[in-house]
């Protein structure tokens, strides 16, 4: 039988979308690490929301690279004006060795957080500078953390 409707025309209708396979999607195991004291408060607040396999660290010195990165998919570093570049560097280096993606969120006005952005830039493959604390949760929800 010759079908007069193209494959793409048939496949892209709303009706056909109903037949997409509905396989459960596993969440990402994220490590959310505060790099300074103000960021720690943010991390503590966000950690109170319901999350999956992700873990939150309000004190970067308590982050045990060997143990805490063992089953991680992504490390997200949170900073404000005073990010600790040395900590960011050691976490990012460890992530690089383990093939773990790194991301950074710097909270504050761009004019005020330049140092933190500079500290994170070499180490966070994806970096967001934002004045909106809600973006931390938005990123984590989007990543199914």
């Amino acid at each position: 039988m010759i079908d007069s409707i193209s494959s793409c025309a048939r496949a892209t209708t709303a009706e056909e979308a109903r037949y997409r396979i509905d396989r459960p999607i596993a969440g990402r195991s994220a490590r959310i690490i505060a790099l300074d004291a103000s960021a720690a408060q943010v991390v503590l607040r966000v950690a109170e929301l319901p999350w999956g396999a992700s873990k939150f660290y309000s004190d970067a010195t308590a982050f045990d690279i060997e143990a805490d990165l063992a089953d991680a998919d992504v490390a997200i570093m949170i900073a404000t004006a005073a990010a600790d570049a040395e900590t960011a560097s050691s976490i990012a280096r460890a992530c690089g060795e383990r093939g773990i993606m790194t991301a950074g969120l710097v909270l504050g006005d761009l004019a005020d957080v330049g140092d933190a952005v500079s500290a994170l830039r070499p180490y966070a493959r994806n970096l967001m500078v934002t004045e909106d604390e809600d973006d931390v949760a938005a990123v984590l929800i989007a990543l199914r953390a």
Binding site: T12, A14, V74, N126, M128, A138, V139, A142, R144
Partner: peptide, 29 residues
Amino acid sequence: SLQESMGPIVNREKERLVSSDTGIIKARQ
């Protein structure tokens, strides 16, 4: 072609974003 292949309105509950999608995440926000 690829954006239309998602369907008329893509169901974003079914997507699996990665951190390189940060721009999209922030734009939506």
